[in-house]
Nucleic acid binder design. Sequence first.
RNA 1: UGCCCGGUAGCUCAGUGGCAGAGCAGGUGACUGUUAAUCACUUGGUCGCUGGUUCAAUCCCAGCCCGGGCAGCCA
Length: 502
Amino acid sequence: MRGRHPRAAGRPRPRRLSRRPHARICLGRRPGFRSSPRMSLSRTLVKDALLAAGPADAILLQGWVRTRRDAKGFSFVELNDGSSLKGIQVIAPATLPNYAADLPRAATGAALEVRGRLVASQGAGQKWEVVAETLTVVGEADATYPLQKKGHSLEFLREIAHLRPRSNLFGAVFRIRSRLAYAVHQFFQERSFAYVHAPIITTSDCEGAGELFRVTTLDASHPPMTEAGDVDFRQDFFARKAYLTVSGQLEAEVFACALSNVYTFGPTFRAENSNTSRHAAEFWMIEPEMAFCDLEGNMALAEEFVKHLIRDVRQHCAGDLEFLGKFVDQGLLARLDFVLERPFQRCSYTEAIELLAKSGRTWEHPVAWGDNLQSEHERYLAEEHFKCPVTVYNYPRTLKPFYMRVNEDGRTVRAMDLLVPGIGEIIGGSQREERLEVLRENLAQHQLPEKEYWWYLDLRRYGTVPHAGFGLGFERMLMFVTGVANIRDVIPFARTPGSADF
RNA sequence: UGCCCGGUAGCUCAGUGGCAGAGCAGGUGACUGUUAAUCACUUGGUCGCUGGUUCAAUCCCAGCCCGGGCAGCCA
């Protein structure tokens, strides 16, 4: 994956500077500058150069050309290395020995290595700029380079998923994605939650969380058959049917009943033929699970978690968020701050049905107790009635999976969905049924075989405890935080029905 | 999976039953401490594919492919 693929041939590699000493400039001897014993100069990231406290006599930059403007006697080159949204302006004087030969090759998209001086800029647009003393075109990009100095449609950029991280928007999105993942771990680690790696391959096919992808090593055109004429999965790799996981929840429950507070954070897979802007076949999910915890504690953690993520990104990705607030979603920053300030609303399913019935709206899907809340209903609650994230809880038992705890009324379960404006459901969770007999009853009602869940039932046989947890769709959270409207644009390489390029 | 919208230059798009258009990108030149620089000139087309209607189809019709929106399923 890393540079071995033929398509990566044109990808620039950082040079081993120590093997290519530049005798002409003894950069390492300049005072006040970091240098190795071999007198090589270490790379400065553009984001650090932009934050420099003062000028520097020697600096090494490596990155890609965003745009070049030729002036009389020199050229301006905007160099970006992905470390920040902003690039740095490089002045390439015509006195460079390779100016005539190489500057034309320093076109948009080309990889460059620049050594020079960091100086205060004479221009108005930036504080610092770099006057090049040497400039090397490490990797050219010819006129066919698809990213231009203009706006592109998101649809077009999706078709060049291998190049779109070099664009402003996707650079911002993926830097934020990285930070958001870090913030997830930080949140749980600071609270002594243990990170559990739930299996990606699973053999339980009846969790009710959607269609599963089959995992098999059998020959699709000539599978072994049983005498009854069925495919003989006993001869498959795992000696039975196997799938990609749709959720790590059941496994997380196992570990919560041992380590008390745990979370999973990994890829999950749904083979649903969903064609919407908020569904993907492969997505990442965070699933905390807490022993000795009820629905109330679960809702409280969900709110604290979501707010932590927003606050962290707000603080550490300010430049990228500002860009997104300007070019993607003008209401973004105000909405994030609003969500941080306000307590999330809570509303039982029964109250939600009443609110919807009393709203005076005509609904495309009828509102009736016992029916699922439809997209239009969820949107009304979050965007119009509460105008704020809202947790809907205590759903009808018949709508929810077997593992949710049955309430005293016998007809609702301790389920919760967190709905946010613009996205809809971002979190789904529940207090789990800890009573063995009730759980067995639920399995029977859902027509699920007890023997498949023997280990799950054992948790209730040995030291059972009230426990609760939820799942947060990482990409949906990222959509909310970035204002990006399509889930395909917050995943590096999206997998959706009929599409798994790259 | 259903309903709806779209597919024209490398990109973003306009357009017409009768010679295929603009802006940007690319090229050439000019100018310039520029900021997606500017100005002039200029290269560039299987109008998604297949079939049909027509003297003539990029345009009208049908089928297919691809992209997108919404809905369902959910995170």
